[in-house]
Nucleic acid binder design. Structure first.
Lengths: 331, 331
DNA sequence: CGTTAGCACTCCGATGCTATGAGTGCTAAC
DNA sequence: GTTAGCACTCATAGCATCGGAGTGCTAACG
């Protein structure tokens, strides 16, 4: 069984009994293999595209392989080097770190690589900063407790005065800082505005911007790289379009990656719950900040992806990211 | 000639004399058309995939069509609405504005849409801001004179002290602010560090971050959306991969879009100077801030893109972006 | 002289047929 | 339980055929 999966992963062609014999140097005859294989078909681990073609692992087959048969390969030296070097530059910035990670992963695996920052369900506002940049324009920066940084420009109808800034800071430091991101809603902000009395009018656009930034900071931000790598894989021949469409929508991917508990996750074919991923597998792992689960990094490829080699790679990368991230966000 | 191009744009099939007659309701016979068409072939405006097939416009043909024959269509009402609505939300932030623009363009045209912020050749540092977020961690925000905002986290080896911040601000406000982005190099920063004497050591990582942000702010940042739209177009059948590869590399695209002078630019096929764009056309237009050229917004599609309809759309969108942008960056 | 009708010719694409061969399932012998 | 042998299946490639859309050319027409 392991041999079948491995050979298929290597060649991409349905594997027949003779071929298997030749390639794997087994000490039994092709007839034996045939018997075994038809048994495996009966068990649902292999399937045949049509009678008298070789066998292909089914989703269930891959699952069994990954869970029971696969022997993880060491991440080889050159790979490690590349990962380390690729990640290190500018790695004290969390966003940059993830960018690097996703780029390096796409490059090395020839698959599409994804990262998802944690959905900020539990995150709160750590800091809000205003920087005046013109008479009426401001820059607002929001930092969440999970280290997510979002900024935007905004424009007021009136001049920016020190008093305005000060009253915003006062308000922010007593009501906004520490507030959970997801609970910042227009309604809640209206409440604040109301309680401000006279300044309310000037404050409205500011609060609007806060809401915008909070929303963006709380959303799981996903980065995708190397989509074009998938175009090369023949298994996607006619159907790339749907897959690409799917990948370009951030939400489902983000959900998928955040949903998991625990370190590593391998989703084979439809296990992911999305029809568009029918022919694809996901391998992803959570990274940790200060020992607690944060976002996820992973890759998307055809189901006949090289699990034994790539799973350890993803894990290695994720571990590295965890370390850097923890360091970058150290108190 | 115009009829040929238009029909081909509509159907995507090589157009023959009879078909042209039927579809366009012309008042001459097919033989006349044949004569005319073979003349156009001789001129290099049309080509035939093989003898006894219809004609398709050559790159030169499209060029001639766009320059001389095409009658621009009005941007229709529903389109305008969609553009206006799509752009408006959060439009006082330049980056967001571009995101909206590129998204709406991709959506409406079923092509890939791109924006390029201006390469910051002439931009300088307008403002640098530091925000302490932890004992040893800082957030640095850089705003360029062209309104580009970049931020990152960074981590020092020592604690962040008010004196450190102050001396950075002093240094920044007298030497860095107003400095052209492209001239900020490690060498130049070393000079600054040296002149600081005692504080130099603590300042190094800060200056490193400045250099990083300056570099990123000066690079033409490009946003791409709707690549997957291109997968549907049959003209790209086998060759999507190279195109995607090309689109995912930011530099050439950015250069291409920045190189132009003047409002609108249409590049047909190889006119762009890149072999990967052989089968594609670009339509893009510069947007203006306070009346002077800034970045560009445009789209990429197959050469048989609907020029008459899309050129005005791009122009309309770009004009809108110019207005919003100017407003957002008003002094 | 430009336009048109007629006609022979070209060549792509679809269709159908056959040969090939990798692969199977089954049975019988080891 | 394993193996050898054999008849059978079925996708794929190759080849010939055919139809049709479209062409170029020539000759007639206004």
């Amino acid at each position: 069984m392991a041999a079948v999966v491995e050979l298929y992963i290597r060649t991409g062609e349905p594997v027949g009994s003779k071929l298997l014999l030749a390639e794997m140097g087994m000490h039994v005859s092709s007839a034996t293999i045939r018997n075994d294989m038809s048994e495996l078909v009966a068990l649902g681990l292999l399937e045949q595209p049509h009678t008298s073609a070789g066998r292909i692992p089914s989703a269930k087959g891959y699952r069994y392989y990954v869970d029971h048969l696969m022997r993880r390969q060491e991440v080889d030296e050159s790979f490690r080097k590349l990962i380390e070097v690729g990640i290190a530059h500018g790695a004290d910035d969390p966003a940059r770190l993830l960018e690097n990670a996703v780029a390096v992963l796409a490059e090395l695996t020839h698959c599409a690589a994804v990262t998802a920052t944690p959905a900020g369900d539990r995150a709160s506002i750590r800091r809000i900063e205003l920087v005046p940049v013109g008479q009426k324009t401001l820059m607002m920066v929001l930092l969440s407790s999970t280290g997510v940084l979002k900024s935007r420009m905004l424009r007021l109808d009136m001049e920016v005065t020190p008093t305005l800034l000060e009253s915003f800071y006062n308000m922010a430091s007593c009501t906004l800082v520490g507030y959970p991101l997801t609970e910042i809603s227009p309604v809640m902000l209206q409440g604040i505005a109301a309680s401000l009395g006279g300044n309310a009018l000037a404050m409205l656009p500011l609060l609007g911007a806060v809401s915008d930034l909070a929303q963006r900071a709380s959303q799981s931000q996903i980065m995708l790289e190397g989509q074009s790598n998938l175009l090369g894989h023949k298994e996607y021949d006619g159907t790339v379009y749907e897959l690409m469409e799917f990948l370009n929508k951030a939400e489902p991917l983000g959900q998928l990656m955040n949903r998991t508990q625990g370190g590593l996750d391998v989703r084979i074919g439809e296990e992911s719950g999305y029809a568009q991923l029918e022919k694809s597998s996901l391998i992803f792992a959570k990274y940790f900040i200060h020992g607690s689960q944060a976002g996820a990094i992973g890759l998307i490829g055809p189901t006949r992806i090289d699990y034994a080699r790539l799973i350890p790679s993803v894990q290695y990368l994720t571990k590295l990211v965890s370390d850097f991230m923890t360091q970058a966000l150290e108190e």
